[in-house]
Computed example of a mutant assay.
Amino acid sequence: MTNREQKIVRQAYDNVVLPSEHNELLFQHAVLCQVYLPYRDPGVEVDNWVRQQGKAYFAIQSTKVFNPLTEKYDKLLGLPYGPKARLILTHINTLALQQRTSNIAVSDTLTSFVKSLGLPNNGYQIDAIKNQLGRLAASMISIAFAVEEQRAVQVNSTIIKGFDLWFPKDANQKVLWDGNIMLSEDYFSSLMNHAVPLDGRHLAVLANNAMAIDIYTWLAQRLHRVPLQKKEFVSWNGLKEQFGEGFSRMDNFKKNFRSTLRLVLTQYNSAKIEEDINKGFYLLTSPPPIPAKIYQIPKFNERN
C-alpha cells in the first residue's frame, strides 16, 4: 500500500466508534450486494433509480410524503444515497432477522440508533441519519431475480412501511421516534430468504466510503460461490458499469477502484482476487467474511 492509502486506513480506524455491545454480525439483502443505491445525492429532480447486474435487478422511486403543516402530500425527500443509507439498511435488516418480525424494536432515541451504527454521536451524524431514514421510508422499491430463462421472482414494495418522518423531540431536545420500524412484509419475506451475512467490524472501518461498502458486500456474496479450482473473470467494463457511478473516464475509475479495493482487502483479507491489468480481475473461491456455521437464518415460513 502507498503511504496515502495507509493513512486512509489509519484514519478509518481512528474514526470508528465501537459501542460496548457492537454487533459483529450484520446482514444485507442479496440484491443490494450486487446493485446499489446512488453514491451521491442525485437531487430531488431524479426520482427514479434503476440498476441491473447479472440476474439481479433493483429499482427505487422517491414518493411524496404527507406534510402535517399543509395537510397535503407535498414533500419530496429524494432518493436514499451514500454510505449511511447502506449502514442503516444493514442494521435494520439485522434487527428484523434477529427478532424474526417485520415490526422491529429499535432504540427509543435517534442518538442511540446512531451509536448502534458505530458512528460518532454529533449533530451532523444525527441529521444525516434522519435524512436517510426519511428517504428510505418515502421510497418504493422493486427487487427481482431472474431465476430461469422466462421466470423471475420480484418484490414491489416499500422497504420501511411504517415510520414517523417528523422526529419529535423531548424536553431535553433528544430526537425521538416511537421505538419501532415496520418493514413491509414483502421486503421482509425476501430478506429472510436472501440475506447475506457481513462482518460489522469490517463495515465500521469502511463506514465513510460507499464504493468500499459496495465492493465489500459484492465480494462477500460472490467469492464463496466461485467453484473450487476455477476462476471467474470480471472485465473492467463490467466493473465500471457496476461501480463506476460518476466516472466518465475509465482511467480515473481504474485508479479509484484499485485504491478502494485495497482498502476493502485490509478488512476482508481472506478474499482472493487477481488483477489482469489490461482486462480486469479474476475472482477465486474464498471463505465468506462470516462462516455459515456460526449463524442461521430461519426460513420465512418458520416464523412464530
Rank of each mutant, 00 (worst) to 15 (best):
R4F: 07
E5H: 09
Q6W: 00
A12S: 07
N15P: 01
H29T: 05
V35I: 09
P38L: 05
P38C: 01
R40D: 02
P42G: 06
V44N: 12
E45H: 11
G54D: 06
A56Y: 05
Y57F: 15
F58W: 07
F58S: 03
A59M: 12
K64C: 01
P68I: 03
L69T: 11
L69D: 12
E71C: 07
K72V: 00
P83H: 06
A85C: 10
R86T: 11
L87N: 01
I88Q: 09
L89C: 10
L89W: 02
H91N: 11
A96L: 08
S102F: 10
T111H: 15
V114G: 03
V114D: 15
L117V: 02
G118Q: 03
Y124R: 12
I129N: 04
Q132K: 03
L136T: 02
I143A: 06
A144H: 12
V147C: 09
R151K: 13
A152N: 11
N156D: 11
N156M: 11
S157W: 05
F163Q: 04
P168W: 00
D170R: 09
N172A: 12
D178Q: 07
I181C: 04
E185W: 04
F188C: 08
S190K: 04
V196E: 03
V196M: 01
P197N: 11
L198M: 12
D199V: 05
A204V: 07
V205A: 08
V205T: 13
N209G: 10
R225K: 07
V226F: 12
P227Y: 05
P227A: 10
P227F: 07
P227K: 07
Q229K: 08
K230I: 02
K230L: 07
V234G: 06
G238K: 05
G238I: 01
E241H: 13
R249D: 13
N252G: 15
F253Q: 13
R258W: 02
S259W: 03
L263Q: 10
V264N: 03
Q267D: 08
S270Y: 12
D276E: 12
I277F: 07
N278S: 08
F281V: 08
L283S: 04
A292Q: 14
A292S: 14
Y295M: 11
I297K: 04
N301Y: 15
R303G: 08
N304I: 11
